[in-house]
């Protein structure tokens, strides 16, 4: 029993220490942001790597999520005789919730793991040490552009996810199930307000900061071995996914 308590206490202390390290790292990233933005080319390159290269998975997933939403929504709304509201339901669900959350989970799996493994391998192959020896700060030169690239890419990906998702819902609802096209779009236009869109934008920005920070932290601090890089990559996905869902609940509660 005493052993269990000791392990629990140790686990709690370790978690707090990790949280403190994360907080210090994120504070440094935020402090370095203005200077890093001056090296615009490096950030744009990373927006391409984190964003553009994630487009296929984001668009495909958005389409299928939207189509499922169209089917389920139609089935539910038909019971109440209000299938014309499908556009509103799909748009609100995607813009406020599914777009930012699912895009962030996919971002963590696609771009986050790429960031963590790239940085981990740079650590394992002494590339980061070599930069230190060349009097180049690896946080400024390598970590910051990757962090900012993710922060910029994430809201854009969430927006694209939502748009493609709405298209998928329309494909199923209007083209397959026969919902009136005019009703679908006009009800959506009337019911979805700017505040709903802003909620999605805020969420995706927060998720972008969280997922990118977790990925670069885990990669930068990975143990410089093959196993260490693998573990960093796994931790990136696990921690990012849990954080996205936790933050989603907190943000939804605050913005309701």
């Amino acid at each position: 029993m005493r052993h269990v308590v000791r392990e629990l206490v140790r686990g709690a202390v370790d978690s707090l220490v990790l949280l403190g390290r994360y907080a210090r790292f994120v504070a440094r990233l935020l402090a370095e942001t203005p200077r890093a933005l001056l090296r615009f080319g490096l950030v744009v390159e990373q927006v391409y790597k984190s964003g553009a290269l994630s487009l296929v998975i984001i668009m495909l997933s958005g389409l299928f999520v939207g189509m499922v939403l169209g089917l389920q929504g139609f089935d539910l709304l038909e019971r109440f005789g209000s299938e014309e509201s499908l556009g509103t339901a799909a748009a609100l669900g995607l813009v406020k919730e599914l777009g930012p959350v699912v895009a962030a989970l996919l971002f963590a799996g696609r771009a986050g793991t790429a960031l963590a493994s790239e940085l981990g391998l740079m650590r394992a192959t002494d590339q980061l040490s070599a930069m230190e020896m060349m009097a180049v700060d690896p946080v400024r030169r390598v970590v910051m552009p990757r962090f900012l690239g993710g922060v910029v890419a994430m809201p854009l990906l969430a927006g694209i996810f939502s748009m493609i998702g709405i298209f998928g819902a329309q494909l199923v609802g209007v083209q397959m199930m026969g919902v009136d096209s005019g009703q679908f779009w006009s009800q959506m236009q009337g019911a979805v307000e700017r505040g709903d869109v802003m909620e999605g934008v805020v969420k995706s920005c927060v998720f972008g900061v969280a997922c990118s920070a977790i990925a670069v932290y885990e990669g930068y601090h990975s143990v410089p071995t093959a196993e260490g890089v693998g573990r960093a990559t796994t931790r990136t996905v696990v921690i990012s996914s849990v954080m996205v869902l936790l933050l989603d609940y907190m943000l939804t509660a605050v913005m309701m």
């Binding site: 391998l121 590339q127 040490s129 070599a130 930069m131 020896m133 009097a135």
Partner: peptide, 17 residues
């Protein structure tokens, strides 16, 4: 500033991949 006056060759080269 001191490191700018040094050059170091790492065991594996440590070239930026």
């Amino acid at each position: 500033a001191l490191r700018r006056r040094m050059g170091m060759l790492f065991q594996n080269g440590a070239l930026l991949s």
